[in-house]
Computed example of a mutant assay.
Amino acid sequence: MSVEAKAAPFAGPAAAEKAYRLEEHIGFVLRKANQRHLALFSARISDLTPPQFAALARLEEVGEASQNQLGGLIAMDAATIKGVIDRLKARGLVEIDTHKEDRRRLVVRLSAEGRDTLARLRLLAFAITEETLAPLTGRERASLMRLLAKIG
């Protein structure tokens, strides 16, 4: 099936004659919103990347996880999460150990330094979310988060 045939049911029959306005398309709008958020994040938290922060935050929630589990919990593929974990380990923010029952499996957990770092950065992370969502009302924020979760 051609790309045009796949797109037709969603775009309607007149779509081929309609001008393509980038700002009317979800990918472009999401990318702009993400760029805004990433700029705010890097301005306030310069010592961690958003994926590194996400890994620390999720480990705080779950206690410990395998590398693959952690990747799934923060929407990252196996190759990407491995690099994130390696960098966090090199900085002493996580510990890697063998699983208690299955010695072939490795588990990742926060180190004391990782817990301290997360505690220090938590308020900044809340402020970044607030600033990212600042143009929206409380109701709009809740709707946006609900709708994005629905398509994510």
Score class of each variant (00 low, 15 high):
residue 53 F to C: 03
residue 49 T to E: 05
residue 48 L to C: 07
residue 34 N to W: 06
residue 19 A to W: 06
residue 38 L to E: 05
residue 39 A to N: 03
residue 35 Q to H: 05
residue 20 Y to H: 14
residue 22 L to W: 05
residue 26 I to N: 10
residue 37 H to D: 02
residue 23 E to T: 12
residue 42 S to V: 00
residue 29 V to M: 10
residue 59 L to Q: 11
residue 26 I to P: 03
residue 23 E to I: 10
residue 53 F to G: 05
residue 21 R to L: 14
residue 22 L to M: 13
residue 38 L to V: 02
residue 57 A to C: 06
residue 49 T to K: 02
residue 46 S to E: 04
residue 37 H to M: 12
residue 53 F to P: 04
residue 14 A to N: 14
residue 47 D to H: 06
residue 53 F to I: 02
residue 21 R to I: 15
residue 57 A to N: 13
residue 17 E to W: 09
residue 35 Q to F: 04
residue 50 P to H: 01
residue 57 A to L: 14
residue 16 A to T: 15
residue 56 L to R: 03
residue 44 R to P: 00
residue 42 S to I: 00
residue 55 A to W: 05
residue 42 S to R: 10
residue 49 T to V: 02
residue 41 F to G: 04
residue 57 A to M: 10
residue 27 G to S: 06
residue 40 L to R: 03
residue 37 H to C: 08
residue 53 F to Q: 06
residue 24 E to V: 07
residue 30 L to M: 12
residue 53 F to L: 10
residue 31 R to H: 08
residue 35 Q to D: 09
residue 33 A to W: 03
residue 54 A to P: 09
residue 55 A to V: 10
residue 57 A to P: 04
residue 49 T to C: 00
residue 36 R to D: 12
residue 51 P to H: 00
residue 32 K to M: 12
residue 54 A to Q: 14
residue 40 L to V: 01
residue 39 A to D: 05
residue 27 G to D: 03
residue 38 L to G: 00
residue 18 K to H: 13
residue 14 A to L: 15
residue 27 G to T: 08
residue 15 A to F: 14
residue 27 G to R: 04
residue 18 K to L: 14
residue 46 S to P: 00
residue 33 A to H: 07
residue 51 P to Q: 02
residue 42 S to W: 01
residue 28 F to C: 08
residue 57 A to D: 11
residue 45 I to A: 02
residue 53 F to H: 07
residue 42 S to N: 07
residue 59 L to S: 12
residue 34 N to E: 13
residue 45 I to P: 02
residue 56 L to Y: 04
residue 17 E to F: 12
residue 19 A to G: 08
residue 48 L to A: 04
residue 33 A to T: 08
residue 51 P to K: 04
residue 20 Y to V: 15
residue 32 K to P: 01
residue 59 L to N: 11
residue 24 E to L: 14
residue 56 L to K: 04
residue 48 L to K: 03
residue 58 R to A: 13
residue 56 L to G: 08
residue 58 R to Q: 15
residue 43 A to M: 02
residue 37 H to W: 06
residue 49 T to S: 11
residue 30 L to K: 08
residue 19 A to H: 11
residue 26 I to G: 13
residue 20 Y to Q: 11
residue 40 L to A: 01
residue 24 E to R: 14
residue 48 L to Q: 03
residue 18 K to I: 14
residue 41 F to P: 03
residue 54 A to R: 13
residue 38 L to P: 00
residue 57 A to S: 15
residue 52 Q to C: 07
residue 18 K to S: 12
residue 59 L to V: 11
residue 32 K to F: 03
residue 53 F to K: 06
residue 23 E to M: 10
residue 47 D to Q: 08
residue 47 D to N: 10
residue 35 Q to E: 11
residue 47 D to T: 07
residue 32 K to V: 10
residue 28 F to G: 06
residue 33 A to I: 07
residue 17 E to T: 15
